[in-house]
Structures are given as structure tokens and as C-alpha cells.
Amino acid sequence: MSFAGRAKGWHAMNPRLGQAPAVISTQGLVKSYRGVQALKGIDLTVPEHSIFGFLGPNGAGKTTAIKLLLGLARPTGGSATVFGLDIAGRSRAIRRRVGYLAQDPRFYDRMTARQALRFSARFFYTGPKAAIERRVAEALELVGLSDRADRPTKGLSGGERQRLGIAQAQINHPDLLILDEPAAALDPMGRRDVLQVMMRLREHTTIFYSTHILDDVQRVSDTVAILNKGTLVAQAPIDELLSTRGGSAAYSLALRGDSNQVRRRLEEQPWVSALSVTQANGSPHLQVAVRDQAAAEKHLLRLVMADPGVTVLEFGRTRHNLEDVFVGLVEGAEHGR
């Protein structure tokens, strides 16, 4: 089964997800603009307390999907729920429990950072004033803007505005934080800070964020979905995604001894899809790609160890680089059209 195929049935297949209730769930969500489909029926499931990376190249439809979830745009087909509430009819109730950072956060120029946070907080809390002020101060502290708190927002740098955006997004202690490209406009230090803030917030909230910065995803996400041209091409826990490239798992073995016989026996197995051998420090290293992961886990190591001519020095699932997986899936989906 390909990852594109897995995207649909993932919820049922994934035991980790099965345990956590879905915060976001979409079924065939479609959005068209003047006849052009920006989203082509996506089925997305975001488990509670996950840091869910929503990946895709520019123009893939990530921001469109986010806007639909928030009620900032209306779907033209399919359905979706957030906290079990329908996005079409219960949008305001959803937004009460959500914090949102736009791709390019905007504030009223005249407001200071503190006033912008106070203003945001007032949509959720009527008081007491001291508690709101404390919350505003906490949010400023969280994103490192305490020393800029009383500057007008128009005087803030791009990175500072982004951090203020994160602060206002979580001012209401949201159950779900939706961040649209939270680190796109930041320098490496700013990116690191934002990722640290996300890691801190995950204890209390589910984080759903879109990005095209793959390094960030690999560092903080536990689950990911890849969107390309409005179609979901993959959705899986990141460990699974990195260890099963293109829908097939791969294993690596470092051996000592003559590997020729092992190689011949493996090539005869119906569950092996590809095999390559390289030499490293005089030892053969086998890369075994498999069609059937369950069969491989049951027989692979046993088959190799049954050969008295070799000793297994290392064995494990091959972990791919996310960039390779991403490019492979996106290009694979395009070639498959």
C-alpha cells in the first residue's frame, strides 16, 4: 500500500492514533475557487496532544485547509469537525477553544504588544483584570517580548511580530493551537525559539502547524501529513514515515563474513523488493527494501542468522531523511498523475 493510500485508512491502522481521540477530523474536504480545486477531498485526522506537522510545498493548500477549519472560509464539499464540532455550523464555538497564528500575523499598528494581547484576551475572558494582566505578562514572557511589551506593534521586527502572534494565539489557553508557517519568516535563532515554545506548549495543547521547513518538522513533530496540490499524499507518525519510505520499509544489516549466500537467499524471498550491498570497513552492509513489513520482521533476521558463514554486527530499520521522503512522495504523486 502506498502512503497516498495510507492517508485515508490511517486512523484505523494506527494503534497510537486509535488511543488518542481526534481533535481535527476531515472527510473529503474540498475547497474550490472559481472552479479551481485548492483542496481535493482531504481526509485528515489529528490526534489529541500531538504536534502535527502539516507539510507541503508552497501552494499545496495548507493555508486553505487551516482557514476552513477556523471558519475563515467555507468548504465547497466534504465535512470536518474540530473537537467533534462541525466547522460549518459551530465555527465560533471552535474558535473559542483554538489559538491561531496566521502566516503573516497582523495587528493594529497603534496598539502596543501588551495592548494587542490584552485585546485578544478580552475575547475570551471578562476578568478579573489582574488575572488577565498576569496572563498577558506570562504570554509576553513565554515568547521573550517582555522588554518590547509597550512598543507599538508597527515598530516590531518580523520575528518579533511572529512571536507576538504566537503569544496572542495561546492567550486563551487553547486546546488546539493552529500555526500557519510559524517559523517561515524567522532567522535560525528565531526558529529555534519558536520551536522551543511549541515544545513547551505541547504539554497542554494539541499543535497543528503547517510548514515547508522539513528540519523543523523532524525536530518537533510526532505526526505529519503531506499535502501536494490539494491532495493528501501521506499521513503517519513521523517515525513510521521515516522508516517506511514510499510505503515500503527498508532494513540495514552490517555483517562479518561472506554475504553472497545470504544475498541469494534474500533475493529469493517474495517479500523482498530490492537489495543492495555496499562495503564499509571491509564488512558487507546490506540494504533490504521489503514489500511486506510483517513478513520481513518475522523472517529477515532469522534467515540471515541461519547462515553459519556470517555474523550480524548491526541490524535495524533504515531511517530516511524527511527531505528524501517528502521529495519522493511529492514527486511520486506528480508522476502518478
Binding site: A93, R96, R97, F124, R135, N172, H173, H204
Partner: peptide
């Protein structure tokens, strides 16, 4: 919601929410 209990939450006022 994980909100601090000390806060008084805004009630939904329907079409006047946020006014």
C-alpha cells in the same frame, strides 16, 4: 479547556459575540 479557574470566561452572545 485548560484555562485557569480564576478567569471569568466570556459567554457566547450569538450574533453579538465580541461586540
Amino acid at each position: 479547556m485548560a484555562a485557569d479557574l480564576a478567569f471569568q470566561s466570556v459567554r457566547d452572545r450569538g450574533w453579538l459575540s465580541g461586540l
